[in-house]
Design a protein around this nucleic acid. Structure first.
Length: 644
RNA sequence: GCCGGAGUAGCUCAGUGGUAGAGCAAUUCACUCGUAAUGAAUAGGCCAGGGGUUCGACUCCCCUCUCCGGCUCCA
């Protein structure tokens, strides 16, 4: 059969019969042929050695592409398993996929791997790479596969789980072999182990077989692999950078917050400086809620257990709730894990007309969740937190406008904190769901429409919605490119039903309102953690707990320093005088390590002329002799909070 | 919750069965200085907590707590 292949741009490569990927790559130049690790034919990735016997588009895959890295990491995982099987008698291997930035492989072994084991495995991997063993693709029927992996309980389970409908051409499964090592794998793989340029084992951990905590606990080894040594080093540097920004390190360093053991897991206290940042975030939150037409409400931290039965939380969320409190003859009370039932009760506190809607209620509500001890993580995952929570009740006609408004709010809120790149997930109806199909239809469409009209890139996460309604999650990228889920806009068909919410429509009959949960920051604690890491602790001036440090050159300048401080404070700035007997250099160093946005040095000349030496964070030197009036005005301008 | 690692001064860390250590921070004194560390002195410890082994335990063993890396979870 003659084959016609085209470049992705449409140009015809040529015609051939029974060509392989190697030949195709070679046809477009020796350099590319050498760099090629796979080909993509009609969008499907293939090993270089496989014949191409259909017409179509092709693209040569090189290591530095996304596909190439995926293949590299997958092949790396095989080599890792091969090394472990070489070194550890009786080790069984489970699965080993490529993941973001690397790969892992899970093993069942007698004893968990030690650091020394990891080093030995790394050395064996280097040997396997040096031996440049070719990867060979093997197509197997189910029986052949079961025979080839006889005695491998994990592989056998995988083979038996393969859906025969998924495969074509009589091949049930494929496997890849290099030397004596063989593993089930869809492929493709690198031509040989020698094509792995840079690989590093990172860490080990426990992991469950098939992610199920009731099944075998396996030992996982993580590694990373890159197209060049330089890329690997760059990756390690990014990890180092992330570590430097870690909010658990910066929090104590900048005196923002701490987690005393005396309080218990996942409970933070906020020190004055962290308290100031938090107050500014909360002030901005309140101002923005008001601007977008929300009203403030307040609710208590505990309520009768019955409330949580009505809301359904004790049915579906009980294991994340703190246990009940019982005193004397009182009924049982529970600490609130969510604010919604309270807002629902505020809605229900009187009869509602369609003329009253939408009703938008917001609260910085403190909630407590009994997170499993192993998942608590700094301020990112806590047991006690404050949510910038809101609940909106509206008619079906209002849904579109409301969702547009909520999304615009969310995006403007995130922009105010320096986040510019947004990606959203639109999560739709899961299999097990409550509510009328029409409700899902209307709201899913309205959510998509809101995303379109705000111009937010999004992907549809089919079936990923909660059982009670579809939602949008907005993700941002921080200053070093990490993705965080921030805001969420969530429909709820459950609570209006459970609490029997109604409004009277124009025909004077009762109708059920739609309910929208929305968190812009999410938990203030988590938001703070992300901000600290995003800014690396160097907050923009409007959020900085100390905005200016005044450094008197000698004690005789202390009086003038106080004058400068008063001028700054008069302009609404938060200023501190560095009054210690340290040297000027030392006081500056202190202000810089504390990441204060502005340092004002005052000496003899400044006292004489009413000036300051002004140095801003991130600049290497000062500007001398700036008139105090001018410096004050300039700093006040820099410190202005985002417009509401 | 599960697997693994770790807990020594406020912080970062030395200390392998025989009297508890350093740097930074703190305090005091001297220095009064123009842009990332002036000097000296002082103080600071139930070695996470409890139990055990031993003549003797920071050190070895057991339990608990907390933290770290993952897994799982996040209606």
């Amino acid at each position: 059969m003659a084959v016609q292949l085209r470049y992705p741009d449409g140009a015809v490569v040529g015609h051939a019969e029974g060509v392989t990927g190697v030949e195709v790559a070679a046809s477009i130049g020796p350099r590319l042929a050498q760099a090629a690790v796979a080909v993509k034919v009609n969008g499907e990735l293939r090993d270089l050695s496989r014949p191409i016997d259909e017409d179509g588009d092709f693209a040569v895959v090189t290591l530095d592409s996304e596909d190439g890295l995926h293949i590299l990491r997958h092949s790396s995982a095989h080599v890792l398993a091969q090394a472990v099987l070489d070194l550890f008698e009786g080790a069984t291997f489970a699965i080993g996929p490529a993941i973001e930035d690397g790969f892992y492989y899970d093993f069942a072994v007698e004893t968990p791997f030690t650091t020394e084991d990891l080093e030995a495995i790394g050395r064996r991997i280097d040997e396997i790479i040096a031996e440049d063993q070719p990867f060979e693709r093997v197509a197997l029927s189910r029986l052949e596969a079961l025979e080839a992996f006889a005695g491998h309980r994990f592989k056998t389970e995988i083979i038996n789980g393969v859906d025969p409908g998924e495969v074509s051409g009589g091949e049930l499964v494929t496997a890849y072999r290099n030397r004596e090592f063989i593993d089930l794998c869809r492929g493709p793989h690198l031509p040989s182990t020698g094509r792995i340029p840079a690989l590093r084992l990172m860490k080990t951990s426990g992991a469950y077989w098939r992610g199920d905590e009731t099944r075998d606990q396996l030992q996982r080894i993580y590694g990373t692999a890159w197209a060049t040594q330089k890329d690997l080093e760059g990756y390690l540097q990014r990890l180092e950078e992330a570590e430097k920004r870690d909010h658990r390190r910066l929090g104590p360093e900048l005196d923002l917050y701490s987690f005393p053991e005396e309080l218990g897991i996942g409970l933070a206290i906020w020190h004055p400086k962290g308290g100031m940042v938090r107050k500014l975030i909360e002030d901005h939150s309140r101002a923005m809620h008001r601007r977008y037409g929300f009203e403030y409400v307040f609710s208590p931290h505990v309520a009768k257990a019955d409330l949580w039965h009505t809301s359904g939380h004790l049915d579906y969320f009980a294991e994340n709730m703190y246990p009940g409190m019982q005193t004397g003859d009182d009924p049982e009370y529970r600490v609130k894990p969510m604010n919604c039932p309270f807002h629902v009760l505020i809605y229900r506190s009187r009869g509602r007309s369609y003329r009253d809607l939408p009703v938008r209620l917001s609260e910085l509500g403190g909630v407590y969740r009994y997170e499993k001890s192993g998942v608590v993580h700094g301020l990112l995952r806590v047991r006690g937190m404050t949510q910038d929570d809101s609940h909106t009740f509206c008619t079906e006609d209002q849904i579109q406008d409301e969702l547009n408004l909520h999304l615009r709010f969310v995006v403007n809120w995130l922009r105010d904190f320096g986040f510019e790149e947004f990606e959203a997930d639109l999560s739709t109806r899961p299999e097990k769901a409550i509510g009328e199909p029409k409700q899902w239809e209307v709201t899913e469409k309205a959510l998509a429409e809101a995303l379109e009209s705000e111009g937010i890139a999004y992907k549809v996460a089919t079936g990923e919605g909660a059982f009670y309604g579809p939602k949008i999650d907005v993700h941002i990228r921080d200053a070093i490119g990490r993705r965080w889920q921030m805001s969420t806009i969530q429909l709820d068909f459950n609570e209006p039903e459970r609490f029997g919410l109604e409004y009277t429509n124009a025909e004077n009959t009762g109708e059920r309102p739609y309910m929208i949960h929305c968190a812009k920051a999410g938990a203030i604690e988590r938001f703070m953690a992300i901000l600290v890491e995003h800014y690396g602790g160097a907050f923009p001036m409007w959020l900085a707990p100390v905005q200016a440090t005044i450094v008197p050159v000698a004690d005789r300048h202390l009086d003038y320093a106080a004058v400068v401080a008063a001028a700054l404070e008069g302009a609404g700035l938060r200023a501190e005088v560095a009054a210690s007997s340290d040297t000027v250099a030392d006081k500056i160093r202190h202000a810089l390590t504390q990441k204060h946005p502005a340092v004002l040095v005052v000496g003899d000349a400044d006292v004489e002329d009413s000036t300051v030496g002004l140095r801003l964070y991130g600049e290497d030197s000062d500007v001398r002799g700036v008139p105090l009036v001018e410096a004050t005005a300039r700093l006040a301008e820099l410190a202005r909070a985002p417009a509401v």
